[in-house]
Every structure is written in structure tokens, then in C-alpha cells.
Write a protein that binds this DNA or RNA. Structure first.
Lengths: 242, 242
DNA sequence: ATTCGAATGTAACGGCTTGTAACAGCAAAG
DNA sequence: CTTTGCTGTTACAAGCCGTTACATTCGAAT
């Protein structure tokens, strides 16, 4: 799978340069110029590593990194100013995994990205799942910790890994149209090729597990030309946390 | 689809210049000379990006941008005066995505518009839909969250993506004549070509779903030469929000 | 009141998008 | 090595949307 890198920098030339360079070297790239866009990208895509400018205007890279570390072990490489040793120390203290000083060689950054990814490879991001609250919707209850789906009548439904990942993607983005690329990124870490029907097949299988009426699905609805939407309210049962 | 740009500037030469230039480069353009017209345009059209003059007389571009950010993540490019660095900083702080200093090259603005749109591409604007209240009219109830339409007799009517978008457009602009261009913009992100009957077909299909008498439709009425009007009171059931 | 042209209504059709059965390949378990 | 389950691909079917064509309605002109 091609790792998905998120580049967060207000300098559009840096975003553009890194976009082209990293794609050329086999990565998928998203870009954000500010904290808000960064948060949305982290929410809607499955990002494998963040390249974050420490001197980001507004909230600042330090605060954004700190905030990210509250919920995630996602690797972060900080872009810092040359010679600013204090900044680097602070950056590493709030959880950055590495730093690269500006102006930087894209090749150096590439090497560090690969090194950090190699080191964190296989990381299944337990924080994202472990301790996660039970999700409830339309009488169903879905426990990510035990990977257990319970039907409204109490029957436990077993899910394959693919079905589980897809349901997690939907349940954590309810009432939003998710494109096939987003669903594939969130579940398989790749984008769809032309004529790729794999998500449609998986959605069909998950609908069957969720006992949907194929003619008129209620939970997972099709949005023609857009993708799929998990059309239900989802509640977090934080109180069942152990 | 052709992105829809809203140009907000009191200088009609700038509005005119940008209108011609941006259309030539594949955009649809609307223009506003003041805050009031800007608000109406934002309500009646599906705008993809706003170009906003920071020095707009009256309420001022800063306040308008701030107000826009209270409800929307719509990208904004500020037009600022050359050399006014304080203004730019303030502009970015109230949420502008980029800025261009006057006098500006239309080509530079075009490049920035494309860059910002590329960055925000795929943005499904969750604020517009998530947590949306149930809309009630003439005994019908329409829940945008579950995309479910319920008839006065309780029967659930399934809607296609196109029918859903059209009903949303009508239900969020009740008792107002909407032109075919507006309906197409709000539902498909494009304007009508000559002899374009697609909205009329969709209206016909939606009327059938809403059980209208074709000879004498009550909910969706035709305004000859003007478009269509959703002629009913629409209530927001905010209390059903979860 | 009549005529005419424009605007609108919608049936039918074609192309595109989506649903899914069936099958093949792969990986893991026994 | 064999068996089983899972996932993706292929093929066929169904639904959706836009275009076309024909019919109806309405408003303006006479």
C-alpha cells in the first residue's frame, strides 16, 4: 500500500513541491495550509504520517502537534527553521518523531519519512481503537474493542476484517457522504483504480450483515455519483469504557 | 463541474473584469457589491469560493469574513491593499484562506483560486448537513440525516440522490421562486444550457414522489418564465436534533 | 374570440452508475 | 498438503439521469 502523507504548511510552494516530489516516489499526498484543514484531512482520510511546519501561522505547529498527540500516535515530522534549536527541542517534547530544518532537501525529507514509516510500520494505532467507546445506531451496538456487532434482537453478528474496517469508517463518519476513494483509503490504505468495484462489493456484504433491504437500504444509502452515506445517528457509549 | 465563484467588491470594474476573466477560464461567476447582496447570493446559489474585498465599504470585508466563518468553511480569498500587512494578518486570522494584494493580476488570482479549490476539493461541507433538523411541510416530514421522506399517511418514500438534492433545495428555500439555473446550481453545481429540460424532468419526478396532482400541483408550483416555487410553510424540528 | 409562439409537462430511450452472483486467487489454519 | 474463509474481479441486471420528441398550456398579439 502507498502511505498517505499529509503536508501541513502555509507556504503553497512547499506544499506544491512536496506534493509532486512525494507522489513521484510512491506516496499518496494530501495538503493543508492551516490547522482547520489539517483536522478535516485527518478526520476524512487515513493519514500515515504528517509533515508539519512548526512555524505555521495561527495556532502554530507546536500546538497542533500537541493536540494531535492527545488522540494519536501518528508519526509527525516537524519542519523547523535552521538554527532554531529551542524550537526543535520543544517540537520533540510535544511528540514530533523527527524534524527537518528549512531550507531542506526534499530527498532528505523523503529519507526521514521512509525511516519513520519503517520504524512505525505495522503500527495498528491502538489508540484509535483500544478503549474506544461502543457505538450505537438504530438499535445496533458496535464495540470496536471486542470487534463485536450486536443486532437489535441481541444476536451477535461476526464481521470479517474488511467488514469491520468498513463499518468503523461509516460509524465514525455518520451522515456524511464518503466517496469510494475515501472509503478505500480509510479501510485499505489505497485509492480506487478505474472500474474498481471492490468497495461496492464490500458495501453489499456489509449491508447483508446489517440486514438491510437491498431494494431500499436505510443505514448505508447510495449517493449516485458521490459514494455512500451512513444515514443514521451514532451515539458514543463512553460509559461502557473499561 | 464548473466551480461557482462569488466576487464581492464595490468596484464594478473589478467585478466586471473578474466576471469576464473567470468565465473565460471555466468558472461560473456571481457578483455582489455589498454585504447584503453577498448574503443573498450565498443563500440562493451554491458558491464554491468567495473572493472578498477587505476594504468593502459598510460592514467591511473583515466582518463579513468573520460572519461567514460562523456558519461555513467556504474558502475565501481576500483582496487587500498593497503593503497593508496588518490587514492581511487580520484577514487570515478571521479565516481567509489566501489573499491577493491590489492592484492584482487576474492570472495570479486565477492561480490562487485553483490552488485553494484543489486543496478544498472533496470537501463535503458537513456543516450544511450534519445534525440538520427534520423539515416538515403540509403533513410531510423530511429528515436530511436519514435522507428519509415520510408521507402524511406515514408511508416512507424513497428518494434518489437527485430527488433528495432537489427536495433539499426547495425545502431550504420555501416560498421563493427559484430559477432553473439556481436549482441546477444548488443540486448539480452547474447552470442550464439552452434547451436544458433536466430540471423540469426532475421536478416532474419529485412531484410524482410527493403525490402532486399534475394538473394542479400545490407544493411545487410553476412560475412561468421564472422557475418553480415551493409554496408551503416549512418548519424546522430543531427539537428532534440529537 | 382566435391564433400563434413560447414555455412547460412528461413518456420513452439510451448511457452511465450501481447491485450483486459467481468465480478465482490468496492467505491462514489444521 | 488440504481446506476454509476472505477479498477482488468479472459479468449481467437494475436503477437513475439527461436528452429527445411530442403534447399541452398559457400569454401576447391580432
Amino acid at each position: 500500500m502507498e502511505p498517505h502523507i499529509l503536508v501541513v504548511d502555509d507556504d503553497r510552494e512547499i506544499r506544491s513541491l512536496l506534493d509532486r516530489f512525494l507522489r513521484k516516489h510512491g506516496f499518496r499526498v494530501s495538503a493543508a495550509a492551516d490547522g482547520q484543514t489539517m483536522r478535516r484531512a485527518l478526520d476524512e482520510w487515513k493519514i500515515d504520517l504528517v509533515v508539519l511546519d512548526l512555524m505555521l501561522p495561527g495556532e502554530g505547529g507546536i500546538n497542533l502537534c500537541r493536540e494531535l498527540r492527545e488522540h494519536s500516535d501518528l508519526p509527525v515530522i516537524m519542519l523547523t527553521a535552521l538554527g532554531e534549536e529551542t524550537d526543535r527541542v520543544v517540537g520533540l517534547e510535544v511528540g514530533a518523531d523527527d524534524y527537518v530544518a528549512k531550507p531542506f532537501s526534499p530527498r532528505e525529507l523523503l529519507a526521514r519519512i521512509r525511516a519513520v514509516l519503517r520504524r512505525t510500520q505495522g503500527d495498528s494505532r491502538p489508540r484509535a481503537d483500544s478503549g474506544q467507546a461502543v457505538l450505537r445506531f438504530s438499535g445496533w451496538s458496535f464495540d470496536p474493542t471486542s470487534r463485536q456487532l450486536r443486532a437489535p434482537d441481541g444476536v451477535v453478528i461476526s464481521l470479517s476484517a474488511g467488514e469491520y474496517d468498513l463499518l468503523m469508517a461509516f460509524a465514525t463518519h455518520p451522515n456524511r457522504v464518503l466517496s469510494r476513494d475515501q472509503l478505500l483509503d480509510l479501510t485499505r490504505g489505497r485509492f480506487a483504480g478505474p472500474f474498481d468495484r471492490s468497495i461496492d462489493i464490500q458495501v453489499s456484504r456489509l449491508r447483508r450483515k446489517l440486514r438491510e433491504d437491498p431494494k431500499n437500504p436505510k443505514l448505508i444509502q447510495t449517493v449516485r455519483g458521490g459514494g455512500y452515506i451512513f444515514a443514521t445517528a451514532v451515539a458514543n457509549d463512553a460509559s461502557t469504557d473499561t
